[in-house]
Write a protein that binds this DNA or RNA. Structure first.
Length: 278
DNA sequence: AGCTCAACCTGGCTGC
DNA sequence: TGCAGCCAGGTTGAGC
């Protein structure tokens, strides 16, 4: 689930309950995530206030009094705010207590991450994990022609497919496997086209498509926010109605041609061979 | 530098 | 039913 829209919806969902509040306790139920969750969080975090909750790519950045708490949802992570009296569920990995409320990271596949970046190590932007990320799709730097220019410039002399170029997030962040297929369809670009051969008009269409698809997905998820605090159960699935993703052998919603599925870099790509051209 | 691919994990579905 | 095999929303890092 967690591509940029889902992470952003999560950020907005937990914000009203967590921002400005102090952590009272931390429990690491199973810290063997992508990287080992630092054990000292249990000691460091209690008493610290969540000053703000920001997002960079698919990372959530909780600004604390003495540093940043970085959270990543990986492939299967969810963050929920629950009454702290609720019992832990299987696959709950870390729980942050805020008095009567708990913020819980639930992550069956354990590809998520919980990291600590103390103020003493400098600005969060200098963290190598964040430094290699492309620009934010909704930032001024990616608005209008600037977005097209970034895609065009960074794709020059690249032999990888446009699908892999976009998914890598070096140019623009947040486009995961689902929204990558959807964005390429929206832009009418064949996923196997070499990134280096993208024309300027194609880059312009792709930049616009990325902004549109991600925005639509965020808007669709926003409607589920009112139910963000639940005693039990999963957050409602708010994935955008897809035009190509997971629609192999189904009719294209535009031209009725059958949607194709191919593998690119060990990931599935879906596209319409009629609507999307090299 | 850029590309490909294995690896990290668990669960759910398909097909025998 | 049981079980093997395959697939899944992300990202790093090794090896070429």
């Amino acid at each position: 689930m967690p591509e940029l829209p889902e992470v952003e919806v999560t950020r907005r969902g937990i914000l009203p309950y967590i921002e400005g509040r102090k952590i009272s306790a931390v429990q690491i139920i199973d810290g063997r995530l992508r990287w080992q969750v630092p054990n000292n969080l249990v000691r460091i975090l209690p008493g610290q206030k969540v000053c703000s909750i920001e997002r960079r790519g698919k990372y959530l950045l909780l600004k604390m009094d003495t540093g940043y708490l970085l959270l990543h949802l990986g492939m299967t992570g969810t963050l929920r705010v629950l009454p702290s009296t609720n019992p832990l569920k299987i696959h709950d990995r870390v729980t942050f207590e805020f008095g009567e409320l708990s913020l819980r990271l639930h992550d069956p596949r354990k590809f998520g991450a919980v990291l600590w970046h103390p103020q003493s190590k400098g600005p969060i932007e200098q963290l190598s994990l964040l430094q290699r990320l492309g620009v934010e799709p909704f930032s001024p730097e990616f608005r209008g022609e600037l977005g097209a220019e970034i895609l065009y410039r960074l794709s020059r002399n690249r032999s990888v497919s446009t699908k892999q170029f976009l998914l890598a997030g070096q140019a623009v962040v947040g486009v995961g496997n689902i929204y990558c297929s959807e964005s390429l369809f929206e832009a009418g670009i064949h996923p196997a086209k070499s990134a280096g051969k993208l024309t300027r008009p194609q880059c312009a269409r792709l930049a616009a498509a990325v902004r549109l698809i991600l925005k639509k997905a965020i808007d669709a998820g926003g409607s589920s926010l009112k139910d963000f605090v639940k005693s039990d159960g999963e957050p409602g699935h708010f994935m955008l109605q897809t035009k190509v993703y997971d629609r192999k052998d189904q009719a294209c919603k535009v031209c009725k041609t059958l949607i194709k599925q191919i593998a690119q870099g060990q990931r599935s790509t879906y596209f319409c061979p009629q609507c999307q051209k090299r």
